[in-house]
Write a protein that binds this DNA or RNA. Sequence first.
DNA 1: TCACTTTTTAACATAAACTTAACGAAAGGT
DNA 2: ACCTTTCGTTAAGTTTATGTTAAAAAGTGA
Lengths: 225, 225
Amino acid sequence: MIETKHTILLVDDEQDILEFLSYNLKKEGYRVFTANNGVEAIKIAKKNQPSLIILDVMMPQMDGIEVCQIIRNDMQQNSPVITFLTSRAEDYSQIAGFEAGADDYISKPIRPRLLISKVESLLRRYDHNEPSVNESTIRIDREKFIIHSKGIPLILPKKEFELLELLASKPGKVFTRDQIMNIVWGDHAIVGERTIDVHIRKLREKLGNDYIRTIKGIGYTFNEI
Amino acid sequence: MIETKHTILLVDDEQDILEFLSYNLKKEGYRVFTANNGVEAIKIAKKNQPSLIILDVMMPQMDGIEVCQIIRNDMQQNSPVITFLTSRAEDYSQIAGFEAGADDYISKPIRPRLLISKVESLLRRYDHNEPSVNESTIRIDREKFIIHSKGIPLILPKKEFELLELLASKPGKVFTRDQIMNIVWGDHAIVGERTIDVHIRKLREKLGNDYIRTIKGIGYTFNEI
DNA sequence: TCACTTTTTAACATAAACTTAACGAAAGGT
DNA sequence: ACCTTTCGTTAAGTTTATGTTAAAAAGTGA
């Protein structure tokens, strides 16, 4: 497998846990930074742009939830976040930390194997999305909902953006109408047959006709030029 | 966030289990389709080509074993399959479901963690094998719905693609007209006698006459060159 | 609320894919 | 060889999927 040696930021106030997890993650080949508190965490996050952040939500001073929010919102940083939960927290969906934008959670006591599998899974997920920064003809800025096409920035409405983002996430891959429907509109959406077409049309109006190709009977595909 | 991860088809007659597992799998970033019975399952499998199928072998109407066989044999679909076993089935190797081509099993009651780890492991395995690059003269890219013949990419209409895909899936194997009809056109299609021939012709036009051979009185076969 | 943008619907046009029909050619059996 | 069956080929006919347009509906923010 090809690895680019991901950087992980580990944040907890307990030094033991920090060392324990750090050891396990390093053993997997990751580069690991540790922080004892939120302030330090933010400093490191800013400086080293880790691929992934693992946070304890129960920390003194500035707690994990806040850190999560700051990194997510204020710093415009995309790193996925895993949070720890104490064992008493049974219902994770209730936990505020999750709503603050964590991508996954793990309960204490922490089993390193599980943590590592979560880490891998998250990184894989993000890795697959990331490469859509094709330096070719189109550039997608997920944060700002802006698409740069031939240098000119385009601000797209949400649905159009999501549609294009999906198609462009795997250039060449044909997405079926069903897939598009499920992913962009959601499983339960009930919209008419022509809705997708109309959005495709809008995109073609703005990008030109050369990017999105129809595969009749199947769906659409995005082609770099 | 928009994901392009693996698609999983979940089949069980108990709505509760369906929802429970669906929730857990979605949380891992998978796209999940669900079906309450075998017929629905087959329909979805055909349509959405899931990366993985999770089946309950104990279902009314058409049971899991049959579904497994149909997907495996008749539909020429390669998705790995995980089956559930009821708790009383201690010795899974005895279970027919396994012989029908399941790749793994899991016993009830189902622990989501375990299921997910099995899912990940199977998908990893298949991902690495999958590049179903028939390293001969023709390459079929299911994802892109493109066929590369002698280096030139060909975009085929749906029926032609499906027909070629079927034939090329087992080079040398002779598919009867009935089989072709059933798989490519579906069980209920009522089309004339010459329809298959015409599509074969279209393919020969595009690929040359050397790939598809007629076995008179039986059907057609695909030969690598 | 109003003005504005975005999303969806509906109706119709268009083009592509698919099927049929008719006939010719080849293969197989007697 | 002859007859029968099966397959090949073509062009025309039909169906279906998608394109297009405008307008209605639903959101959004001042």
